[in-house]
Simulated scan of single mutants.
Amino acid sequence: MSSLRRIAAPLLVTLLTAGLTAGCSGLQGTGDGDYVPGAKGNNVAEVAVEERESPIELSGTTLDGEELALDDLRGEVVVVNVWWSQCAPCRSEMPMLVEASEELDATFVGINIRNSSEAEARTFETKYGVTYPSIHDPGSETLLAFGTRYFPRSMPSTVVLDREGRVASLVSGPIPSRTTLEALVEGAAAADG
């Protein structure tokens, strides 16, 4: 094997692995921000009722110091939004999420990742008028509950759970529109199967 092939083969494997890890979000970076923003294209995946897996078992401590467990929300459609205060797309979509949380028939929960400072995360919530709870998880450990199939790979990411706590849809990157979110919530509520 030539020396070029010995160098190129591992490089190709590394690039392919990075592409798969980034998923639909692309490979654009954010300098020192160290996260992969969501794609601007079609980034919504709905899950047919018959293909939905086990309910998500996830719990943590909110920014208000309260314990929150998704099992306690069974019977409701739950919108879980993964955010970070330094994520520009997270900041852009937050006003729409806050408004939707007050108007849609769903319970909203945030998961704040990467903010090691709870104060910084609370400042973000105050700035945007967030009234629903957010689990503080700077190490992103709670995201493991979504498994490999529905793991939120980009920021922001939004997962809609049906009334049984199963993933009904996943939005990787910013939610395309308020209408999209409404349709996903309605679809999760209607598909009690």
Rank of each mutant, 00 (worst) to 15 (best):
L58P: 09
N42S: 02
P37I: 05
V109R: 15
E125W: 03
D137F: 03
C90P: 02
G65E: 10
F146I: 04
G41A: 03
H136D: 07
G129L: 08
V130D: 02
A121C: 04
E46Q: 11
T107S: 06
N42V: 05
Y132D: 03
N112Q: 04
G75R: 06
S101W: 00
L58T: 07
D64Y: 09
L104H: 12
R91L: 08
W83N: 11
V47D: 03
S59V: 13
V98R: 11
L143T: 00
P133K: 06
E141P: 05
E125A: 12
G41C: 06
V130N: 06
F146D: 05
G33V: 07
G75M: 03
E53G: 15
P138S: 03
E57C: 10
T123V: 11
E103S: 13
R122Q: 09
D105F: 01
S59H: 15
G110W: 05
G33T: 05
M96F: 01
L143V: 13
N42P: 13
V109F: 13
T107D: 03
P89M: 04
P95I: 07
P138E: 10
A119C: 03
T62S: 02
L143F: 08
D137W: 07
E76R: 12
A39E: 01
T142S: 15
S140M: 02
P37L: 09
A88T: 09
T148P: 08
D34C: 05
L144N: 13
Y35V: 06
E93P: 07
V49E: 06
A145R: 04
V44S: 08
L143S: 00
R122G: 11
R149N: 15
L70D: 12
S92D: 13
S59D: 15
M94T: 14
L70S: 06
V47H: 05
E102P: 15
P55L: 13
L63Y: 10
G139T: 00
D72A: 15
L144G: 13
V98T: 10
D32H: 15
T123Y: 01
Q86N: 08
G65R: 02
K127Y: 15
I111C: 07
T61C: 14
G41D: 05
V80K: 11
C87R: 03
G60T: 00
N115K: 08
D34F: 10
H136V: 08
I56K: 01
S59P: 06
G147P: 08
S92C: 00
T142L: 12
F146R: 10
E125H: 08
A39D: 06
G65L: 04
